[in-house]
Amino acid sequence: MNSSVSTKPREIPATTRPRYRVTAPRVFRSEWAKFWSLRSSWITLGVAALILVAFGFIASASFDPSGAAAQPAVGPAPASDAVGLALTGTSLAQLAIGVLGVLVAAGEYSTGMIRSTLTAVPRRLPVLWSKALTFAAVALAACAVAVLAAFLVGSTQVSGTSAALSLSDDGVLRSLAGAALYLALAGVLGVALGALLRSVAGGIAALVASLMIIPGLTSLLPDSWADTVGPYLPSNAGDAMMSLHQSSGALSPGAGLAVLTGWVALVLGGAALRLVRTDV
């Protein structure tokens, strides 16, 4: 009996590997999960909210109706209404939110993780837009709650005084919404600066300079120049958005929003241009 061994190779059934498309919603979900996986996100948002509520409470509790109208020799007049008192901590909260925005964008460059991110999303720009959109949504929601809490807590301290206001009073909701929107845009400005400079230290330095140092330096300019340039700086535009009463020479709330949005769009555009034209 002859036996023969078949040398024909076995056919392995073909398996179909799933194909995954890189879409904008999937990139957004990825950035959303990445944001909440960082402990610094929770801590910094909590610090910003605590600053708003604590400083608003302290300013409201120390409010003196008899001296509220006194103009100091140097610096702006103290707040004389519940909205201004509640928003006393905005200047510090904007730094916390802005620094977190810088970390969201520049942190991946400092660790080298940006290479993996851009390998998964070769078109690149959806990564930047998703980072900015994720941060804007989270910051706006968190700041809206913190601003409202600061106002409600502070209002209990000035009840029955000349500074007392309620949410139904004219302009109050608009000012509180403007403050929350300003803080969120300041955070997105941090994201844009971090993506543009690709350095945590450089992004934070640029953020502090644009929001605090440069506005202070405008006081050294001649009055005609300062009055022309000053209102269009990011922080001054933000003040116009959240002020209950507009001072002379300041922008209207709508104009302040347009100016600040323009600054954010300009820096984001520069970051997008660098992202598509240079290697990581």
Rank of each mutant, 00 (worst) to 15 (best):
N2C: 11
N2V: 15
S3R: 13
V5W: 03
S6F: 15
T7A: 15
T7W: 14
K8G: 12
E11T: 15
E11Q: 14
T15E: 14
R19N: 11
Y20D: 13
R21E: 12
R21P: 05
R21I: 09
R21Y: 10
A24Y: 13
K34R: 11
S37A: 13
L38D: 13
L38S: 15
R39V: 12
I43W: 07
T44D: 10
L45G: 00
A48C: 08
S62P: 04
S62Q: 11
P65S: 04
P78N: 08
A82F: 03
A82H: 07
L85C: 04
L85Y: 05
L87H: 10
L87V: 03
G89M: 03
A93L: 04
Q94D: 00
Q94T: 09
L95C: 10
L100C: 08
L103G: 07
A105Q: 08
Y109A: 00
G112Q: 04
T117Q: 07
L118D: 09
A120P: 03
V121C: 02
V121G: 03
R124K: 02
P126C: 08
W129T: 15
S130D: 06
L133M: 12
T134I: 07
A136V: 07
A139V: 00
A139P: 01
A141N: 02
C143R: 11
V145H: 00
A146M: 02
L152S: 04
G154P: 01
Q157K: 14
S159D: 15
S162T: 15
A164T: 10
L165K: 11
L165N: 06
V172K: 01
S175T: 03
A177Y: 03
G178L: 01
A179S: 11
L181N: 05
L183K: 06
L189R: 01
V191W: 08
A192S: 11
V200R: 00
V200S: 00
V200M: 03
A205V: 11
A206Q: 10
L207M: 05
S210F: 13
L211S: 09
I213A: 13
P215W: 02
S219F: 10
D223G: 13
S224V: 07
S224Y: 01
W225C: 01
W225H: 08
A226H: 06
D227W: 09
T228F: 14
T228C: 09
G230D: 01
P231C: 02
Y232G: 05
Y232V: 07
S235Y: 14
A240K: 00
A240Q: 05
H245E: 15
Q246S: 12
S247Y: 10
S247R: 14
A250K: 04
P253G: 12
A255Y: 04
L260I: 05
T261W: 10
W263S: 12
L266M: 13
L266P: 06
L273D: 05
R274C: 02
L275T: 02
